[in-house]
C-alpha cells in the first residue's frame, strides 16, 4: 500500500513536470488523494452586490480596505506605484461611461468601493501568457503568484484597473510585526489583486469585506435563484462597471 502510493505520487510528479496536467487528471480520477474541505462554502458562480446607499463614505470604505489589506498582507506604498485590493473612488471614476450631467448630486458625490470584478469573461485570463491568472470553476479569477513572470499584460488587459504590480519589495511596505501569519505576502515583480477571499471560502467563511460591511455587501451564488444575491438583484436596481466591454463583471452596485 505504502509503496503503491509513493509510486503513484511519483508518477504524478513526473506527469506534472511533463504536462502540467497531472493535478487535473488526478483530481478527476477516483484515486485522488485530495478533496475539498467539507466545511468550505461553494458555488457555481460567486457574485457580490454592493449597496452604495449604505456604503458610500470614504471612512467606511477605508475601514473595509484596511480589513482586507491586513488579512492579505497587502503592502502600503505611497505614490502611484501603490498596491491595493480594495479602494474607493467617486462616481465619475467608478462609472466614467455612465455619467450624466444632471445626476442626483448625492449619487454623484458618493464614494464607491472598487475591487476586482471577477468577470465572467476576464481579459486578464485571456492575455496571461503563463496561466498564472486563471478562472476557477466557481467564477473566481485567481492568481498563482509562483508562476507570474511580471509581464503586466493582465494590467493592460484589465478594463477596471483592478490589478497592482509589486514594483519594489512589498515587505518594505508592510509592518512586519503585524503580518497575518496565516497568509503569505507577495514578492517583488509579480502582479496581485483581490481574490474574493478564496482562502476564507475554503474554510466556510464569507469574504472579509462582506463580513465587515454590516450588510452593505451581499455575497452569494449567482446561479442559485434563491441565493441572497439573486434576491437583491431581483428587488433593487443595479449597475455594473463598463458594461460595454463584455466582461460580465461579478460585482454589482445598487445605486
Amino acid at each position: 500500500m505504502k509503496n503503491n502510493r509513493r509510486a503513484f505520487i511519483k508518477l504524478a510528479g513526473i506527469a506534472a513536470a511533463g504536462l502540467a496536467l497531472a493535478p487535473k487528471a488526478m483530481a478527476s480520477s477516483g484515486a485522488s488523494p485530495v478533496k475539498k474541505n467539507p466545511a468550505g462554502i461553494t458555488a457555481k458562480r460567486w457574485a457580490m452586490v454592493i449597496d452604495s446607499t449604505k456604503l458610500h463614505t470614504k471612512e467606511d470604505i477605508a475601514k473595509l480596505a484596511e480589513v482586507c489589506h491586513s488579512i492579505h498582507n497587502v503592502p502600503h506604498i505611497e505614490g502611484n506605484q501603490n498596491v491595493k485590493w480594495i479602494w474607493g473612488a467617486p462616481y465619475a471614476q467608478a462609472f466614467p461611461e455612465q455619467e450624466n450631467p444632471h445626476l442626483a448630486e448625492e449619487v454623484h458625490e458618493r464614494e464607491y468601493i472598487l475591487l476586482c470584478n471577477h468577470c465572467e469573461n476576464p481579459p486578464c485570463v485571456r492575455v496571461c501568457p503563463t496561466q498564472a491568472t486563471y478562472k476557477r470553476p466557481d467564477g473566481i479569477v485567481a492568481m498563482d503568484y509562483h508562476r507570474c513572470i511580471g509581464c503586466r499584460y493582465c494590467m493592460a488587459g484589465c478594463p477596471y484597473g483592478s490589478r497592482s504590480f509589486n514594483w519594489g519589495e512589498p515587505r518594505e511596505g508592510l509592518d512586519l510585526s503585524k503580518l497575518n501569519p496565516e497568509f503569505p505576502t507577495r514578492m517583488r515583480g509579480v502582479v496581485e489583486k483581490c481574490n474574493f477571499c478564496v482562502e476564507r471560502l475554503a474554510v466556510g467563511k464569507l469574504p472579509a469585506c462582506v463580513e465587515a460591511s454590516e450588510g452593505a455587501i451581499v455575497f452569494g451564488d449567482l446561479s442559485d435563484p434563491d441565493s441572497d444575491v439573486r434576491k437583491v438583484l431581483r428587488e433593487r436596481f443595479t449597475i455594473r462597471r463598463k458594461p460595454a466591454v463584455g466582461t460580465e463583471p461579478g460585482v454589482y452596485y445598487i445605486i
Binding site: 502540467a20 485571456r126 492575455v127 496571461c128 501568457p129 503563463t130 496561466q131 498564472a132 508562476r147 507570474c148 513572470i149 511580471g150 509581464c151 503586466r152 499584460y153 504590480f165 509589486n166 514578492m187 517583488r188 515583480g189 509579480v190 502582479v191
Partner: peptide, 22 residues
C-alpha cells in the same frame, strides 16, 4: 521589462495559445 526574468521560460513551460504574448 518583466518583473521576474528568471521565470521567463514559464511562457514555454505552460504554453498558452490564447495569449498573444505567447
Amino acid at each position: 521589462d518583466v518583473g521576474q526574468p528568471t521565470r521567463m521560460l514559464n511562457v514555454m513551460l505552460y504554453p498558452t495559445p490564447n495569449s498573444i504574448l505567447f
